[in-house]
Amino acid sequence: MAGGLLTDEEIDTALAALEGWRHEDNALLKDVPVPQESHRWLSEAVMNEAEVLDHHPEIERGQNGMRFRLSTHSAGGVTARDVELAARIDQVLDGGARDRG
């Protein structure tokens, strides 16, 4: 995966290793069923990972869970940074969150 926008083929290859993620509207999306009381800590853990990459996801909170949307707006779609952040979000969801400080 070179710098800049990824091709559909490169995105498909990346998605094969990212469980539950999909490519939609020039972004990577993942819906996660989590209770509302977990929204705050999960958002904070994901943002800790995002800060490391200097890349920030869109996070939507709903009654039945959360949706993560990753896209590099300056590039107009999905880049390698989005794929890397998706993998880091999966690590957070699997209990591998980075401690702050």
Rank of each mutant, 00 (worst) to 15 (best):
E19T: 14
G65S: 10
H56A: 05
P57F: 07
D54I: 03
W21F: 12
A14K: 01
S71H: 04
M47E: 01
R61L: 15
H23L: 02
G20K: 02
S38N: 03
R67P: 03
L70V: 06
Q36C: 11
P33H: 08
G65H: 12
F68Q: 07
S71C: 13
L42Y: 00
N26F: 15
E24R: 15
K30L: 13
G65C: 04
L29E: 06
D31G: 10
L15I: 05
E51R: 15
D54L: 10
E58W: 03
A27H: 05
M66C: 03
A45C: 04
E37C: 07
G65P: 06
M47G: 04
A16V: 14
S71E: 03
W41Q: 11
P57A: 01
A16W: 07
E58C: 02
A50P: 07
I59G: 01
D31V: 03
L53C: 04
Q36N: 12
M66R: 02
R61Y: 10
A16T: 15
R22E: 12
H23C: 02
E19R: 09
E51K: 15
L15K: 02
L53A: 13
H55Q: 06
N26R: 14
H55F: 14
H39I: 08
L28T: 01
E51H: 09
H39W: 13
V34R: 06
H55M: 11
S71D: 02
A50E: 11
A50H: 11
H55N: 05
S43Q: 04
W21A: 05
H39K: 04
A45V: 00
W41G: 01
N26K: 12
M47C: 09
L70S: 03
G62M: 01
H23K: 07
L18F: 07
H55C: 08
G20D: 00
E58Q: 13
D54S: 15
G62W: 00
R40K: 04
W21L: 06
H39A: 10
L15G: 02
Q36P: 14
H39D: 09
L53T: 05
R67D: 00
H39S: 12
L15R: 05
P33I: 01
R22A: 06
R22K: 10
E19S: 12
R22P: 00
E37N: 15
M66V: 09
M47Q: 03
Q36I: 15
A50C: 15
T72D: 02
L42V: 08
